[in-house]
Write a protein that binds this DNA or RNA. Structure first.
Lengths: 342, 342
DNA sequence: CTGAAAGCGCTTACAG
DNA sequence: CTGAAAGCGCTTACAG
């Protein structure tokens, strides 16, 4: 490891007996290079194991770094991981490379703003060509706007308040409403809600869909059935445990993201409770989990592909007003006893 | 988006009325800068929104790119995603950024060598400071060796034949052996094996552990119970289906990675079969899945942290013989009917 | 088709 | 403590 100084174009030029300009032309596959010269240079490139220094190439204004960044909160969430997969796939096919940054969360479960500002600086310093980002809820500090001013940004999953830019969204309201309506159709009237961050655009959208469905059906919400601000599957598990212990427990539990669903499934399984677990997001092996599960599903890989596609278009010079793609979602039911039967 | 040319040190120098050298000193927090000068420069940096161009900095020999690369096969595998999380965490804390590359697999389920060579070129061109890589089984083409010659590489999960370098391994043989022994202790004698890529160091290690346990117990292997080369959970599901349909079906099924386990769980669940599913790797919600599950578990995030740690040490100049870390694994049983009872 | 030269934005001895 | 100058490895007009 750590060999000597890597060969430069100058080394190649000397080896091939041509000028640096000519080496550059060959390396960049330009036309108007004599076939024999080209061959000689290519032989030297191979002989020396020359690989163009990308930092040097990038230095000249107007040159791209061929790098895009993906900023997520936490890659251990399958949504982020699958998203990243879709992004990488599309980026690689277009000759881009992906820089991966995690924002993490602070002790309260909020985005770490300091870390996010640090990340924005990092991205701008490195002159990435564009950024894909799952943003926090708002942009009070102006960090997203500052970023978007200097580089094309495509937001994923939500658009922070006060920022404009391309965005790829899920049908959060529609998905929640349809799932809730389905539960109502099955006869459920006491439907609990176990939700994550209510401040995140995503969470509030999903809750509003849930609410709209109840309202449309004339079914009242029950205070004691609503649990917000659960920050982990473990917290969701405990919340669910509480719900199941109520004198008049819910017959269905709506979970507003995959972490919540996992927690609820665990609690329901352990209690051998007779309740439908309904959730937004795919959970692997859902059908094997609990007797009765209903999910809002979609393909996070596809979300990543679409977001990367939008960004690449911007990088190719597409200069139109901010665009919005909404990825459709589907309903999936598992277990044959979805109906309420109490 | 896409503002004008970003400000350079020269702009800052003019704005502050000092030389470029002085700006550089301030930006790099060097000593021996007059306090007043420093303040003036810092004010100009803030006023102009200056961010040092990292490509330019990097150009000078001996300067780091502060970039490490992580090369995985497929980020949709939770192992890779959690690994990436651990890597990013440690890298970020040390001031490094992570470039994420996926090799993918070709139609036959093998590593795409062409893509891997492309990736190696990309990494070297970008002068990443170091590389973390889950390698393919061998290095017939010499691509890993070529990479390791020019940059510090830490291999993860397996060391390709014919290459030397630091490596972080799991206790594949030991984990498989212990799990298999446990099954034998529970009375199982007909234990099937559903395995992925047998050529990958990982797969062959896990199989040899399985085999060693059977041998030690004097239990013969049965040809019809061995299914190798399953490339997806779906293939594993079908293989399991076949196993369950045998005249004399297995009482336990050993799955050699998480994909296999998922497939087996689905098949067993659908068939309501009375069989223990045993597997290497964690599968989320394992306890909720099937009546009887036994797993070899470990923390992939920790694997990532350890691998990144080794790499960072190399980058800090640690110059010792190739090192090997083996991450311990644990056994976890779910369900209270692990014993064979037929 | 090819080369000499300027310049990209930094860092780093070298003077002072 | 500060500045002028060289140089990192490329690309790109500009001549020829």
């Amino acid at each position: 490891m750590g060999a000597g100084r890597p060969p430069t174009m100058r080394d190649v030029a000397e080896h091939a007996g041509v000028s640096i300009s000519t080496v550059s032309r060959v390396v960049n596959a330009e036309k108007y290079v004599d076939a024999a010269t080209r061959e000689r240079v290519e032989a030297s490139v191979a002989a020396l194991g020359f690989l163009r220094n990308e930092s040097a190439r990038t230095l000249r204004p107007g040159q791209r770094t061929a790098t895009i960044a993906l900023v997520v909160e936490d890659l251990t969430n399958p949504f982020s991981a699958e998203l990243a997969h879709g992004v990488e796939e599309v980026a690689a096919a277009a000759g881009y490379v992906v820089l991966l940054l995690s924002t993490g969360r602070d002790a309260l479960g909020d985005r770490d703003e300091v870390r996010e500002k640090e990340i924005v600086g990092e991205l701008l310093s490195r002159r990435v060509d564009g950024v894909l980002m799952i943003p926090g809820a708002d942009d009070a500090s102006g960090r997203y706007a500052a970023l978007a001013e200097r580089a094309p940004v495509v937001f994923v999953d939500r658009l922070p308040r006060g920022v404009k830019g391309d965005v790829v969204l899920l049908d959060n309201v529609g998905g929640s409403r349809r799932l809730t309506r389905r539960l109502l159709e099955r006869g459920h009237r006491r439907i609990a809600y176990v939700g994550g961050d209510r401040g995140s655009g995503t969470g509030s959208k999903r809750y509003s869909g849930f609410r709209a469905a109840l309202k449309a059906a004339g079914v009242p919400e029950h205070r004691e059935l609503l649990h917000f601000a659960q920050h982990s599957s473990d917290e969701a598990r405990l919340a669910t445990q509480d719900l199941l212990a109520l004198a008049d427990p819910p017959t269905a539990i709506f979970c507003d993201n995959n972490r919540m669903t996992v927690g609820a499934l665990l609690a329901v399984h352990r209690a051998r409770a007779d309740v439908v677990v309904a959730g937004f997001d795919t959970v692997e092996l859902a059908e094997v989990l609990v007797d009765r599960v209903a999910l809002v599903t979609y393909d996070p890989v596809d979300v990543g592909r679409q977001a990367a596609g939008l960004l690449l278009e911007r990088l190719d010079g597409v200069d139109v007003a901010p665009r919005r793609i909404t990825v459709p979602v589907e309903l999936a039911e598992f277990g044959d006893r979805q109906q309420v039967h109490r």
